[in-house]
Amino acid sequence: MSMVAEAPLKNAVPTDQELIDFVVREARLIDQQRFDEWLDMYADDAFYWMPLEWNQTDPRLTCSLMYEDKLLLSIRVERLKGARTFSQKPKSRCHHVLQTPQVDSRDAAANSYVTWTPIHYVETRLDEQALYAAWVTHHLSVENGKLRIKLKRVDLINCDAAFGNIQLFM
């Protein structure tokens, strides 16, 4: 599948390969800093969740590193473009290595598909480079013939460690 543009689904129900390609494409768009296209992969009611605790179940009454709706994600994307975003002068860059996403569940009747993807993520700026390891769970559904992210959950292997700035997206 071409990574340049989003390919429409061939049928109403996505194949496993289409789910996998979608997850891989999301990481690629982040790495290539195509953030507007990246945001389009999210449903309007989507959340990006990065828990703070190991095996965290509650995003509301337990703190998270990130638990952001599309408004907050779009604010991040706008901020990255800002002329006075000094923490991005110079800009950060990032790099994803994905294990092949596994399709954990598929329920066409409920329009709900879940994938699980172990990743290594490198974020770098100036002379600093940090390596993170995480498991990413995508909850996907089909909207108007296209896959969309309803929930992206990023479980860092060291979620409770003290970190410096993490400025981009895993």
Binding site: S64, L65, M66, R76, F86, A162, G164, N165, I166
Partner: peptide, 22 residues
């Protein structure tokens, strides 16, 4: 309170990024 904390004080917070840079 938790929303405030993660939006302002987390290593993933855009407000935190502004301050730490300074």
């Amino acid at each position: 309170t938790l929303m405030y904390n993660r939006l302002i004080n987390a290593p993933t917070s855009i407000v935190g990024h502004d301050d730490l840079e300074m």
